[in-house]
Design a protein around this nucleic acid. Structure first.
Lengths: 210, 210
DNA sequence: TCGTTTTGTGTACACTGTCCACAATGGCAC
DNA sequence: GTGCCATTGTGGACAGTGTACACAAAACGA
């Protein structure tokens, strides 16, 4: 991608971004544990300590990588949301969107297991949970996208309003758990079709149970 | 616990076990990333390379630690199962057991976050998934305990039989996801009561949806 | 133009996982 | 018992890591 091993100028230009980019590449294959600070600087064509001008820590770099990964997750969910045809019964549309969002999440977990792990496996400060850095192209965090879908379900009458509070947590728990099962649980190694089937059934459960 | 820093005999006696024990201690505070091979040998009062007589790898040690942690998870679930009063309506008993098992899982995640991470965050070969090393005191793996509860639900008529196949996956996804939320998601830092409330509601969803 | 601040370099240290050659030990065949 | 031998431990070494400290180059603002 952005590999400029030999640099002309003393200054790099946008080292911070380059380091995050390198970190993402490493996370893609190998997950968060595979992102190593020195290697990132090497790929950016810079000395190891240069990283410390932009990140306090390896951990800080990891958090930045994780944020970008989370925004990729949000994008995947949003694609699932947007793919739904808006015409027809509002309740059906809302349900389809819930399904689309859930499937988008699972699909991302399967297609980008390394990034997925980096997205969910790096603890960050609670205060940054709604940070724009974690949001997707449309400005919404994955959690916020889910919240939006749930709101739509209530408005469309497909979900009792008194169950709405905190419902994100439960829906998210379900898909998130399945994501983990897919990348290194008992579902690892199953075919795409089998996993899709399991995802559908999981979402059936959520729909019925919410 | 079993710290014998100074050893009399040349042979240790049960080094393998001692290393796993040390690994568990480290995992308890800091999760799987915190278990470092050299430190384990140090705590066992032995030279670093001695570990390689019992484990091929740091990874192998980690897997052993993870297995023990998984059996602790199974124990926590089993305690939740056993706490249910067996008298009364079979359907009610089965449902209470599902609840007990789920709550036991979540409680473990909250009380032993480090061990919990070690239990679920260390990928092992699929073939060992039913290994006795991962089982609890009663010889059942956490997955097997869950399967048993679901069987009981079907027998008691509290769950349609045609939904039974693979239902473990969905129930497990839900509680597992919540466990993650509790240890480093948006639920981190909530009081025990709030988390208990969320757990109950999650299990409500599973009960309705299964 | 000249300090000041920012950003990158060099050297160094403690620590890690792991490899190799060697040493102590305990058990088994005789 | 004696002697062999597989098992289990030790010592030393190496590459690679995160990070601290002192210094150098470049960009910027007065």
């Amino acid at each position: 991608m952005s590999s400029t091993p030999a640099r002309e100028t003393y200054r790099h230009g946008d080292l911070r971004q380059a380091l995050v980019e390198a970190g993402l590449d490493m996370a893609r294959e190998g997950g968060p544990d595979a992102v190593v600070l020195r290697e990132a600087t090497r790929r950016a064509g810079v000395s190891p300590n240069a990283a410390y001008r932009h990140f306090a820590d390896r951990r800080a770099l990891l958090v930045a990588v994780s944020n970008t990964a989370q925004s990729a997750v949000a994008d995947a969910m949003w694609r699932g949301y947007s793919a739904v045809d808006e015409s027809g019964d509002p309740a059906a549309v809302a349900k389809a969107r819930l399904r689309g969002v859930g499937l988008g999440y699972i699909r991302f977990a399967r297609e980008q297991p390394g990034l997925f792990r980096a997205a969910i496996g790096v603890p960050d400060d609670l205060a940054n949970s709604g940070s724009p850095a974690k949001a997707g192209v449309n400005g919404l965090t994955s959690f916020q996208i889910l919240g939006r879908v749930l709101d739509e379900l209530v408005v469309a009458g497909a979900m009792p309003a008194d169950r709405r509070p905190n419902a994100e947590l439960f829906a998210w728990s379900a898909v998130h758990g399945l994501g983990m099962l897919v990348i290194d649980g008992p579902l690892r190694g199953l075919t795409d079709q089998m996993i899709d089937g399991a995802s559908e059934r999981l979402i059936d459960m959520v729909e019925r149970g919410l």
